[in-house]
Amino acid sequence: MTALPDKTERKMGLVIDLDTCVGCHACVVSCKGWNTENYGAPLSDQQPYGADPSGTFLNRVHSYEITPDDGGAAQLVHFPKSCLHCEDAPCVTVCPTGASFKRAEDGIVLVNESDCIGCGLCAWACPYGAREQDAAEGVMKKCTLCVDRIYNENLPQEDRVPACVRTCPAKARHFGDLGDPDSDVSRLVAERGGFDLMPEQGTKPVNKYLPPRPRDSLQSAETEAQETWLEPVAGEAKGFIAWLDRALEKL
């Protein structure tokens, strides 16, 4: 049944640091690589070398620009987005076949691809765009939190994290149990003021985002002091230059 579990033993998820992310898309590439070769149907591409390339990805990095109200410097924020493994996952309850489910033991939201009819309703129900239907396989694909890595005893301990976390060169992605208030990820969220995406949608996402720290202001005491050096040194023009100036003005 696609009913959600009342409670999950653990809430495994990601914490994404928007202050640290450099927007390199390495997480996108490693995610596509791992998930094409492992759990479920491969992530296909359509016309990868053609005029209109497109493909299935479980993780995508947007970039946003903020112009602060207080006149500070405009800031560019790279914004990786994948399934947030919501506690009240609307994608699970709408599924007519029971293919979508949320695991009671760790809270991971998964798709049983052999039950998926590819109706697309779960993708409609997700406010985050975390589900993409594969155009070649006709089944719904989504982040599995690398369920085939994190418990995989054939891998060395340091590799038992999602591929995106393992690969991030800026250490902007953290993985852990967000249901345990003493876990590293929960402490990080508490210290840095981690927040939910679209809290008004009532999905209670497990994944959290850490806000970017404000950048230096353009109007510091130092820059104000420098402004005096930028006063024009030449006064009113005289002679030939003054005549040329007036002549050009009249044109």
Partner: peptide, 27 residues
Amino acid sequence: SATGLGGGEVRAFEPPHTGSNYLLREF
């Protein structure tokens, strides 16, 4: 609210991909 970014006007600067995708075609 979608990005949680505040303190000023938020503007989409660059999409994650140059082509189209399932989300754009569908939604």
